[in-house]
């Protein structure tokens, strides 16, 4: 464990908690893409099946349980409890255009042709594009609540910190996982446009509104 991975995990945890609290306290999921949250729940489910097969550390196991629990709770709040506030018209990204290619790629390019490894690979590829429905929804509505931008910033920062963690681990441990690195680079690049808007607008106290 290194400082970059630790802060990456904490940033990811913060993002998940911020979103869950935002929906719970405001009793509304306006501006939130339910499709992205479903994709994240799939990402955690397919990636953390090893909870059933191997124990790495208390930290590892507890974080995985928290991620899975919070992501399903968030999906539940969006599609069940606060369904009336779900903006389905703007959450119109065709996720099948993500899941099918990612599923195919996971079967073709992986480290080991075993079920757990293919599911893990699928999860890594899916996570790199899982935020697209959310970014697409913001581009359609033309704006985002400030709390949502903080959620997105933490979500994007987490994988950016993981990129530094992988540089650190390659240099000090000779460890690297090309699949995770390439997907992580793609994932972080997808946030660049948002990062620019976040730094130039939200951090200056303005509301994030895209040029219509």
């Amino acid at each position: 464990m290194n400082i970059f991975r630790l802060f990456g995990d904490l940033s990811h945890l913060a993002a998940i908690i911020i979103l869950l609290l935002k929906i719970w306290k405001s009793r509304s999921c306006a501006g939130i893409s339910g499709k992205s949250q479903i994709l994240f729940a799939i990402v955690f489910t397919t990636r953390y099946l090893d909870l059933l097969t191997s124990f790495i550390s208390l930290y590892n196991t507890s974080m995985k349980m928290i991620y899975i629990g919070c992501s399903y709770a968030t999906v539940y709040l969006i599609y069940a409890k606060f369904r009336a506030t779900y903006d389905g018209n703007h959450d119109s990204f065709r996720v099948e255009f993500l899941i099918v290619p990612v599923g195919g790629l996971a079967v073709l390019i992986n480290h080991d042709f075993s079920l757990l490894e293919i599911l893990w690979t699928f999860s890594i590829y899916l996570e790199s594009v899982a935020i697209l429905p959310q970014l697409f929804m913001i581009s359609k509505t033309g704006e985002a609540e400030t709390i949502t931008t903080h959620y997105l910033f933490c979500q994007g920062l987490y994988r950016a910190l993981y990129l530094i963690n992988w540089i650190w681990r390659f240099y000090f441990e000779g460890f690297f996982d090309m699949i995770a690195i390439v997907a992580g680079v793609v994932q972080t690049i997808l946030y660049c446009d948002f990062f620019y808007l976040y730094v130039t607008k939200v951090l200056k106290g303005k509301k994030l509104s895209l040029p219509a």
Binding site: R5, D9, H12, D50, S54, I56, S57, N60, M63, K64, Y67, H111, D112, E117, W120, Y162, N165, F175, D177, A180
Partner: peptide, 10 residues
């Protein structure tokens, strides 16, 4: 190869 490198990351 991924065989020996455990998946210790989240």
């Amino acid at each position: 190869h991924s065989g020996e490198c455990k998946k210790d990351e989240l």
